[in-house]
Design a protein around this nucleic acid. Structure first.
Lengths: 227, 227
DNA sequence: CGATCATATTGATATACATCAAGATACAAT
DNA sequence: ATTGTATCTTGATGTATATCAATATGATCG
């Protein structure tokens, strides 16, 4: 099926549209369209002025930033159901990071001006935007704490734990994106990530296979390196 | 009011109230009150449910977070004119960090419920909240990039540069808060901060004195360690 | 003022993680 | 399948920054 009629249900369940309500959702959806992009595609580039908000329907996208010397890192990885880049689009300022498809992706493009008018006109949509931003702020705060306080092994453990679908004790974390991107997201080199993953497997808390990690015991995973 | 001299002008010029408008400002101000607290005071504690937003009138406040092992770090340092902790107050979720006075402070306490009602009722206020959150998100993204990509010396240099009042080539950066707090904000130990500051002075880009650093040449400061 | 106490600096050493350099795997195309 | 190419892993070595320990500085208060 070429362009699978977009999964309305996924949208409805996304935290953003759940808060915004049905009315706002249809309002935003009408002028929007979907796009399929291969892994490696750039959705938008650092310093560009945003014309669209992006709602990921499938795949994952890395928010990557370049510093003055040209080295890049991944600030955050977004998955299906997430709406991102609101901040730049809302402020009308240039993106401070680029968006790169880390896997093949399917993305809903929402015109930025429609969005901006929407939040001014519809209080429920405004509220949803506020909550989205607040949640994203917390995500970043959490990452700052992670980087400052926790050693590599703990960061990897937490990352994997968050990817296990259920709260349950065991489960499988899919890792479809390139190791380099995951490593950058975690603030380490691919080499260190690889070694850390091996160390976790050696401790028996995970079991590695090509593009996934089976978490044997979530609670114990989060305990590794505990003082 | 014993505490008369509320500097209305500072408020009016703060990015937040500038966007919110006069009406929203008076609306929020009426039920609010100011408080003076000595250095070391805790404005609010991690995991508490927020009852107030805080607008700093004077001094600086550190947002500090504890991890599971009990070690603390400073996520961000806020200065006069800044409104913070909106995210927790807006979501009605527990703070994910504590607020500690890093100097003696004077702070305006805005009841959280008044704020929440306000953003629902007044679109201009809602818009201001959105912009505030977006700006704060960007601050955190910038810090994540800083921590991942830049070595200690460069982080210190950028921190000092941002504290120089004017865009001008030279100026003095005040550093009233304890070294430990600044070091934590920058993701390093006090020892490393001390050594780095000395190194910058040795290179002649700054001149140190007890609680401030005179920046001799802003542009050159930002160049240190350039590849 | 001088004594006390917290905070900051300086010095010596340790270590987590990066870097550099081969290999090994996996994936895509023919 | 077979080859080619990118990605990932493994190993050896280096280094920025942490840690530990001692000293110095500067604030606070009798």
């Amino acid at each position: 099926m070429p362009d699978r009629p977009l999964n309305i249900d996924l949208l409805r369940r996304s935290p953003f549209f759940a808060a915004a309500g049905e009315a706002a959702m249809t309002r935003l959806l009408r002028p929007s369209f979907t796009q399929q992009l291969p892994r490696g595609a750039i959705l938008f580039d650092q310093n560009e002025v945003p014309n669209f908000l992006h709602l990921l329907l499938a795949g994952s996208v890395g928010l990557q930033a370049r510093d003055e010397t040209g080295t890049e890192t991944v600030v955050e990885i977004f998955g299906a159901g997430e709406l991102f880049l609101a901040p730049a689009a809302i402020l009308g300022l240039p993106y401070l990071a680029s968006g790169a498809a880390l896997t093949d992706v399917r993305v809903l493009m929402i015109p930025a001006d429609v969005f901006r008018e929407g939040i001014a006109a519809d209080p429920a949509l405004g509220q949803a935007a506020i909550e989205l931003l607040a949640r994203h702020w917390r995500l970043m705060v959490d990452q700052v704490v992670d980087l400052k306080l926790r050693p590599a092994e703990r960061r990897v453990a937490r990352f994997l734990a968050r990817r296990v679908p259920e709260e349950a004790g065991a489960g499988t974390a899919d890792l479809p994106e390139p190791r380099g991107a995951i490593a950058a997201r975690l603030g380490m080199t691919p080499e260190t990530l690889s070694r850390t993953l091996n160390a976790l497997e050696a401790q028996g808390v995970i079991r590695l296979s090509p593009r996934q990690a089976h978490v044997v015991d979530r609670a114990r995973l989060l305990q590794v390196g505990a003082r």
